[in-house]
Structure formats: C-alpha cells, structure tokens
Design a protein around this nucleic acid. Structure first.
Lengths: 123, 123
DNA sequence: CAGTATCCTACCAGATACTG
DNA sequence: CAGTATCTGGTAGGATACTG
C-alpha cells in the first residue's frame, strides 16, 4: 500500500524547495518547443534551417528565440564558422545528458497516458 | 562513455512515438500550475479557497479552469456535499500515483539545475 | 464558501517581408 | 544560409465585482 506520490514526509520548507525545483525544471524545459529542439539537436541536426525543417510548425522567429534560451541555459553551443557564406552550427552540450531521467519518465508516462485514453475511447 | 540521451536507436516512427508521448505528457501536466495543484491536492488540501490560499499567485478563474482540466484528465474527483452551505471537495485519484517517477525526475533535475546556476553565479 | 462574469491588457506567435 | 523586423490577431490570465 503506497501513499499517492510516496514522497517522504517533508518539512514545509523542504517541500517548498521540491516544489520550486519542479517549477524551475518546467520553466527551463517546459513549453511547446524546448524538448523537441533538444531532441532534434541530439539527433544530429545542427543547422538553423535544418532544425526548422525537422521540427514541424516552428517559425524562424520562435526557433531563434528558443535557441537563445537553450544556449543561455547551457543546453547548446552556438558555433560560428566565419566562412562565406557564414555557417552556424548548434551543438548539444554534455549538459543535455542530465535530462535523461526526465525524458525517460515523461516518455513512459506519456505512453501510458495515451494507452489509457485509447482504452477509454473504446468504452 | 554514453551518448547524450542514451535512447536506444529507434526507427523514425518509433522515435516520433516517443516524441509524441513526451509532448502529450507536457500537454497534460505542463504549464505553470498543474503540478503545483496536483501536489497541493496530494498534501490533503481539498477545498477551493484552501487550494487558492495554498498556491501563491493563482487566481480563482485560473484555479477553476485548471481543476476542470485535471478532472477531465482523471487526476481528481470533484465531490459535492449538498449541504447548506454547499461544500465541495477536490480529491486526488489513484491515477496521480502514476506521476511518481515524473515528479521525482523533475524534482531531482530541478535541484541539480539550481545548484548549477548558483555555482555559475559565484564565478 | 465556491465559484462566474466582465473587462482589460500584455504577451505569444503566425505571416510576411527583408538583410548581410 | 541564418536570421531580424514589423504587423497583427488571438488568447492567457490578472483585477475586480458579483451570485447562489
């Protein structure tokens, strides 16, 4: 028999820290595009227009802004080769590896939730 | 030596399924308030105004809408006691337990990320 | 208490055009 | 190619007031 979320009892301040941590995480990787971009980078897509083609529905403006955010948060490195024409590469950093557990947990849960919805649809 | 996200090689369609699953998950539990509300419910806060007091910054309108979403997605049960005055309780369902891994992963990652930002701030 | 209704605004993001 | 600039409609959500 488990309690619902089975977090150990916490003091209020410990609990708030946990909550804030979850909030921070969602702030950084939440939203419509962040994780999709991270995964696209990880798959080896590194050029701006390539990323835009890979990620359906994203506009240049939004992609540009999201890439800046991701760079600020240390998820990618923007590397400019000063050739003609100029070539810019976006490369995932080792820091993206730290998202492994988060991505796995979200992916698993998402699939399970999908399955549940499918079953309810069949009722 | 690990690849960055260490997902096993996938076919394109398998990969897209994973991606969609992550997207689904973020759609359902993403956003500013969803997880905070779920955790507040899990802590035993069950009344509307109590929840609003517990969750700093949320308005009645937004709380109302989010509670409806969460009910639709099976995370809570809305129980009305037809007394005078009327008492309404929002209770987490067993389904919230399935978020355990997600919450733990997000919480851990969020704390780690905070620590990293703190260190960078000290440079 | 448990919400709804209304107004209002700021931001989000799509479309399009443009630049070096 | 790798973006930025501008315009613009839609909407999320805050403030406030109100209802049964």
């Amino acid at each position: 028999m488990e309690t619902y979320l089975e977090l150990e009892p916490l003091t209020t301040s410990q609990c708030n820290n946990k909550l804030n941590a979850v909030g921070d995480a969602l702030y950084v990787i939440g939203g419509k595009w962040k994780l999709r971009i991270i995964i696209a980078l990880k798959e080896g897509h590194s050029r701006f227009n390539e990323l835009q083609r890979t990620i359906p529905g994203i506009s240049a403006k939004v992609l540009s802004q999201e890439l800046k955010d991701l760079e600020l948060n240390g998820f990618l490195e923007r590397r400019v080769h000063a050739d003609t024409p100029v070539v810019v590469e976006y490369l995932p950093t080792a820091y993206t590896a730290t998202l492994k557990n988060v991505l796995e947990a979200l992916s698993e849960w998402g699939e399970m939730h999908r399955q549940k919805l499918r079953e309810e649809g069949n009722k």
